[in-house]
Design a protein around this nucleic acid. Structure first.
Length: 871
RNA sequence: GCCCCGAUGGCGGAACUGGUAGACGCGCCGGACUCAAAAUCCGGUUCUGGCGACAGAGUGUGGGUUCGAUUCCCUCUCGGGGCACCA
């Protein structure tokens, strides 16, 4: 063993040892409990960032811990390799996306290997590989046969920067999730996956996911957005019948059927058929409709947008009173939700109230307020009453509570054939067509004679040509006849291949299945999937709480319904790791662009009055005062990134891993700290020197009779082992497990006993520390384990068990309080009865001083913990 | 607007089931080693008063329950996140 800790030597040696033995190649073994430890695969953007390192370190610690616990562990890795950054890089560098992507994968794979993750690289996959994406295409065709995938023309979200369509889930605050560009509405034919068919199940099953964070389940539930209500048909009045030429009814959906008698107008979306019919005869209305259809997704307006509207001049009839209600076109009604029409109840809906005020529409109060008083809602001094209450002014339905009123009204409507109870979801079907090149081709051929024809299975995969270089104007596939010119599989005539590709979220919706059988050329999934899946632990960023995790749950259900897999939920336990933050420092010179500086280069100046300023020596050798802007995620634009490779080169992978795992619990944000990294390095070096000094004195003898100090050290080691096991195994709190081991290490460092028994106790303590630390800092522990005289590799050791005998003690300390305040400690035998403990507490000198001559009213004894004397 | 989460020393965090608040680390202070510095090692470090023994205060605010509250309940403040004309 070398005296000095040298990560540059021991880390490659440990990695080589694992690689030579294929130590992490996982094989199916029904005899052992399996543990499928999955981290979200990265997009190969170029280089690993700290977020990746944190994600994969958490997964790796768990994987290595479970392996030592006797599980058959699978920890795979792959690449989410299709996507727009590759195309954008291609446009600026004139390199095909395939080349750019594969080079990035190679770089990032090398970086990951240097971090020493226990990954089964034999199962590696990349979604841009035809061996992978052929199964996207295959399953898409099966979905199409079942009506789960379908093509339709509809209004879509168009990202003008990326020149493609986005799913609703990918539009955030009216902007593209990737580009931040304002989204436009366009009408395009595209393919959809019928995720709404599973809305009810996806929602209900959230309750059966106890291993998921509450937060994520709530977010998914909100996104699915189930609401129970009543669909009501308002028959057309003669004017509406004349305008549309149909004897029909205007359908609305409402969660407040109890307020039906308060409806004084109807509001429809600009795209609603009734609005379009009325606009034909009214130029001003037509202009308004056109305006609404074009602009209304403008993000900045959404919150403040005023309730604008115009009357259609048409009317519908109230289903019970027969009153003629005017139909308005209103900009606050969305065509995409419900029926694209609402009944306007100004007295009991804030939006309707606002609209009625503006357009001078009548307000009719039909719900009593909760206090029981009847308060008429009138403009402008009373606002809409949107709470529940008893109905009034509602004919035969008056005097009912909310539920009774809804039930009675729904039943009466159903009897008339004018309505029924219904459930609505906010969730929309998933549009997957993208007008982009670097993605999985949709396996469809458009034939002038036969229409839409699926590519026959035996012709799959439809291979994406890899040598195209996009120029930034539209989809290069649509400009490549060699790709799109083809023969119709049905009639043999000339046909055109679909040039849209699939949303990359399709690729990531099932990759976790494919790791189980990545080499199967004949089937998408096989029996090995049933062995490994569902994943026991999934680890990734909270940013995927809705998109990826919801799509994957849907996709797995589709495969279940096809009999391809036997489970519905792919991820049993989910851990959403916090982001990695760093300080942001900037300098704003007058008239210049703000400059950002890396925290690494910033010096702290502490003035005599305690105030702190920051300054930086610039590359041009000028000292600038910089401002501390607080913490933010590491980013190029803020200049606060830290390159993992640099940390590994300077300190080694173990230091990077230890810092990340010890600084905060995995779900919380992690503040990067240069001093913290140094501290982690220092701890490893302390561990190294403790083992070095110990083994330099020769082999440790077998344990013998122990004195008190030796028993204390041994007890501490076993106690902290028990705590660390619980912290990692149950609580997933790695930071406290690490703290517990540092405590043991500190005690070993202070333990100055070189007797044979002392050396035996120290040996055991160092073995415990090395074993418990080994999932976190595997390289150095690999070397230390050998140094401690072991022949088996530390990765093959079982997780240690605390020795109950070591934990035993004859006496223990009891806390004594007087009136709830800590006043003393007494040492009593562990088996002392309550009376003895009570007597000992009352006899304590400090306790007696505080009690003095006051009467003791009560003494509370908590066995093994404390005594509280109440005076 | 609605929903969720959070607030603990100079800093990151710990206290798991209502029972010693501040584990562990960082930083800082003092000491040892050194010609010196770095590294390393040892000691101290919630605040206030006191040389000290010790005493008092203290987990965002105000209240409640309890022998006892960082922990449970209510109020408010601040911070973070999610959803948002969703009928």
């Amino acid at each position: 063993m070398q005296e000095g800790y040298d990560p540059a030597a021991i880390e490659p040696a440990a990695q080589q040892y694992w690689a030579e033995r294929r130590a992490f190649a996982a094989r199916e073994d029904p005899a052992r409990p399996k543990f499928y430890c999955l981290s979200m695969f990265p997009y190969p953007s170029g280089r690993l960032h700290m977020g990746h390192v944190r994600n994969y370190t958490i997964g790796d610690v768990l994987a290595r811990y479970m392996r030592m616990q006797g599980h058959n562990v699978l920890q795979p890795m792959g690449w989410d390799a299709f996507g727009l950054p590759a195309e954008n890089a291609a446009i600026s560098n004139r390199v095909p996306p395939a080349k750019w992507t594969r080079e990035n994968i190679a770089t990032m794979r090398t970086q990951m290997r240097a971090l020493g993750f226990a990954i089964d690289w034999e199962r590696e996959l990349a979604t841009c590989d035809p061996h992978y994406y052929r199964w996207n295409q295959w399953l898409f065709l099966r979905m199409r046969e079942r009506g789960v995938a379908y093509r339709t023309t509809g209004v879509v979200n168009w990202d003008p920067v990326d020149q493609t369509v986005l799913a609703n889930e990918q539009v955030i605050d009216g902007r593209g999730w990737r580009t931040g560009a304002l989204i436009e509405k366009r009408e395009i034919p595209m393919y959809y996956l019928n995720i709404t068919r599973y809305a009810d199940e996806l929602l209900a099953a959230l309750d059966a996911l106890p291993g998921w964070p509450e937060r994520v389940r709530v977010m998914q539930a909100n996104w699915i957005g189930r609401s129970e209500g009543v669909e009501i048909a308002f028959p057309y009045a003669p004017d509406a019948r004349a305008a549309t030429g149909a004897d029909a009814a205007l359908r609305v959906f409402t969660t407040r059927a109890d307020t039906l008698f308060g409806a004084t107008f109807m509001a429809v979306a600009a795209e609603h058929p009734l609005a379009l019919a009325a606009a034909k005869a009214d130029a001003r209305l037509a202009a308004f409709v056109e305006e609404c259809r074009r602009g209304s997704v403008m993000e900045a307006d959404v919150a403040t947008q005023e309730k604008r509207g115009m009357p259609t001049g048409l009317h519908v009839l109230h289903p019970f009173t027969g009153a003629a209600l005017p139909v308005w076109v209103a900009n606050y009604v969305l065509m995409g939700y419900g029926e694209g029409a609402v009944m306007g109840v100004p007295a009991h809906d804030e939006r309707d109230f606002e609209f009625a005020l503006k357009h001078d529409l009548p307000i009719v109060t039909v719900v009593r307020s909760a206090s029981g008083a009847y308060e008429e809602v009138r403009a402008p001094w009373i606002a809409a009453y949107a709470e529940y209450g008893a109905t009034v002014n509602s004919g035969e339905f008056s005097g009912l509570g909310f539920e009774a009123a809804v039930d009675a009204i729904a039943a009466a409507l159903e009897a008339k054939g004018l309505g029924r109870k219904r459930v609505h979801y906010r969730l929309r079907d998933w549009g997957i067509s993208r007008q982009r090149y670097w993605g999985c081709p949709i396996p469809i051929i458009h034939c002038g004679a036969c229409g839409e024809v699926p590519v026959p299975d035996e012709q799959l995969p439809v291979v994406l040509p890899e040598d195209l270089v996009p120029d930034g104007s539209g989809n290069p596939l649509a400009k490549t006849p060699a790709f799109y010119e083809c023969r119709c599989p049905k009639c043999g005539g000339a046909a055109r291949r679909e040039t849209d590709t699939m949303d990359t979220f399709v690729d990531s919706s099932w990759y976790f299945l494919r790791y189980a059988c990545a080499d199967d050329e004949r089937a998408m999934v096989d029996a090995r999937v049933d062995y490994w899946l569902p994943t026991d632990q999934y680890i990734g960023g909270i940013e995927h709480a809705i998109l990826h995790l919801l799509y994957s749950r849907f996709w797995t259900r589709v495969m279940r319904d096809m009999g391809l897999v036997k489970f519905a939920e792919p991820f049993t336990n989910l851990l959403t790791q916090g982001m990695v933050l760093n300080h942001i420092y900037s300098h704003q010179a007058p008239g210049e662009r703000k400059r950002y500086f890396n925290p690494e280069d910033v010096d702290e100046r502490r003035a005599a009055d305690g105030s702190v300023t920051y300054e930086v020596d610039t590359p041009e050798h000028v000292t600038l005062a910089v401002e501390h802007e607080g913490l933010g995620t590491m980013s190029k634009s803020k200049g606060n990134g830290v390159d993992p490779e640099g940390i590994v080169k300077r300190f080694g992978a173990d230091t990077a891993r230890l810092f990340m795992m010890s600084a905060s619990p995995p779900e919380q944000t992690l503040e990067w700290s240069g001093e913290g990294v140094q501290g982690a390095f220092r701890q490893i070096r302390r561990l190294w020197s403790a083992v070095y000094e110990h083994v330099a004195a020769g082999p440790a003898p077998a344990p013998a009779q122990l004195n008190e100090a030796q028993r204390v050290l041994r007890r501490l080691a076993h106690r902290r082992l028990a705590k660390a096991t619980d912290d990692i195994g149950r609580r997933r709190n790695f930071n406290t497990a690490i703290a517990a081991m540092i405590e043991v290490l500190n005690a070993v460092k202070l333990f100055d006993d070189h007797s044979p028994a002392g050396r035996a106790v120290r040996q055991e303590a160092l073995e415990i520390v090395t074993l418990v630390f080994s999932p976190v800092i595997p390289h150095v522990c690999h070397a230390l384990w050998q140094a401690l005289g072991k022949t088996r590799a530390v990765i093959d050791e079982p997780w240690p068990l605390p020795d109950p005998a070591a934990l035993e003690q004859a006496t223990h300390e009891i806390v004594v309080q007087v009136n709830g305040k800590l006043r003393g400690h007494v040492v009593v035998p562990v088996d002392a009865d309550e009376e003895t403990v009570r007597a000992a507490a009352l006899a304590d000198e400090r306790v007696r001083r505080f009690v003095a001559d006051k009467a003791v009213r009560r003494v509370i004894v908590v066995p093994g913990k404390l005594v509280n004397v109440v005076i």
